[in-house]
Design a protein around this nucleic acid. Structure first.
Lengths: 151, 151
DNA sequence: TATTGTTATACTCTATAACTATA
DNA sequence: TATAGTTATAGAGTATAACAATA
């Protein structure tokens, strides 16, 4: 009945994935709140770190309808963190770009999330941590449609 | 530049956790929608499979305010899936219980989520799958406050 | 015809603050 | 005083359907 044996009575892989997902979402939400943003708005900012993205592409990346993106970008734009810039190559389209404040916030929050998650994995051996990352990478490679495209 | 080497250029553990979390949330949302429910309402139902739970305890389990629980339970109750039952031991309190329809729906959807997640892990060796589950179990044991209490 | 983005609408989710009733 | 639950309010997130402008 030591803590070690309790942890050893492990969960099924599906249950573990669901619970781990909730824990990660909570970390993300806590960091977002610490930076004064709702989680979805922070997620949007993080999508823009590598460069401007159009509305439809953002919807594909975040698995949201285009009309949902309109409202989300509206709210983040109202905070002065991003701007819509007309696409010179297509007069229907625009790209969403980070302002300086938005970039600082996105990078700082992203770093916070990374630090907190890495800290949580310190209870694993380095080898186990690497195997955890690689097993998840493998699953994502096989099952995340957005994988091939994105970074 | 083969797909194998692409997968081998793995993600950091934090990035892998965040992406995996999104993938799991998407699976859960897809299953919920297939059963005609918003994800949060399905999550609530799943919390009740092992037995009735009071409003405050539900809030702790789901990391939501008590007032948020009131609305969530209202909506699920309106669908006829759960009922508030007065707690005979404490006249302030009530417990939320599943109706038969709610239980059938909760179990079926839970099974669907489990099946889809297990199917996604089939790209791993049995040993890797077991190590994935056990590494996550270890992290949850150390960092999920709701761990000790819950199942 | 197809695509880009928006608007209108209706729900849903969430937190804060103030409240009632019971412990 | 403390806890269980609700109400009121405000804001945020989401999808569907219909639309305008452009490709």
């Amino acid at each position: 009945m030591s803590s070690t044996t309790d942890a050893a009575s492990g969960l099924g892989v599906a249950t573990a994935l669901v619970r781990m997902s909730h824990l990660v979402q909570r970390v993300f939400a806590d960091v977002a709140r610490a930076h004064g943003l709702p989680p979805q708005q922070l997620q949007l900012l993080c999508m823009l770190i590598d460069g401007p993205v159009g509305m439809s592409e953002l919807g594909r990346l975040m698995h949201l309808e285009r009309s949902t993106m309109t409202g989300l970008v509206d709210r983040v734009e109202k905070r002065g963190l991003v701007a819509r810039v007309p696409d010179p190559a297509d007069r229907r389209a625009c790209v969403v770009t980070l302002h300086d404040d938005g970039r600082r916030l996105a990078v700082a929050a992203h770093d916070d999330v990374t630090a907190r998650l890495e800290s949580m994995t310190r209870c694993l051996d380095p080898g186990d941590r690497a195997r955890l990352a690689s097993a998840q990478t493998r699953i994502l490679f096989e099952h995340d449609p957005a994988w091939a495209a994105g970074r």
